[in-house]
Amino acid sequence: MAKPRVATASLCGCFGCHMSLLDIDDRILQLVELVDFDRCPIDDIKEITGPVDIGLIEGGCCNEENVKVLQEFRRHCKVLVSVGDCAINGGVPALRNLVPLRECYEEAYLRGPSVDNPSGRIPDDEEIPLLLDRVVPCHEVVRIDHFLPGCPPSADTLWAALTALLAGRAPELPYELVKYD
């Protein structure tokens, strides 16, 4: 029987959640026995190749490309999980929701202290994805099945959730794994 397939992506996040996944230490050996990885920053597969059992999303959506990737994950993943506070709440990137979009662009491309932009224009390069007017959590864009809170969720949290999902159960995290103070 084929192993379950897992895909992951970091949208508007800091890769901290992915680092936390690597923090499962030697359990990573068990993980590769249990699953096959599809698209994932760790194996550098760029597009999802087929049906996926579990998709893990780090980060919220700050631009059109994030939305595109998230929609692709939703289409291919049986179970989609928001991992970490940015995916769930927007997190630190959502602080820019307090600043008008024009000011964000101007700070990045025109006025920032290290900016060298003789054109004096906000770039229209198609390689730079258009920003959404505000950073939104993933569940506002597509349906999300499970949420793993934490900044980042600890390796134990991720491990507990993954093994539960692989066993076909909804993750039920004990109090110790979701308290932060």
Binding site: L101, Y105, V136, V142
Partner: peptide, 28 residues
């Protein structure tokens, strides 16, 4: 369709960036 949230208004969310950069969406 496709697990999208109907409450998410992509066009509306991109309108300002389109105006500021003076170009359309590549991805959509």
């Amino acid at each position: 369709a496709g697990g999208a949230q109907p409450g998410f208004d992509l066009e509306g969310r991109l309108a300002e960036a389109k105006a500021l950069t003076g170009r359309g969406s590549v991805h959509f």
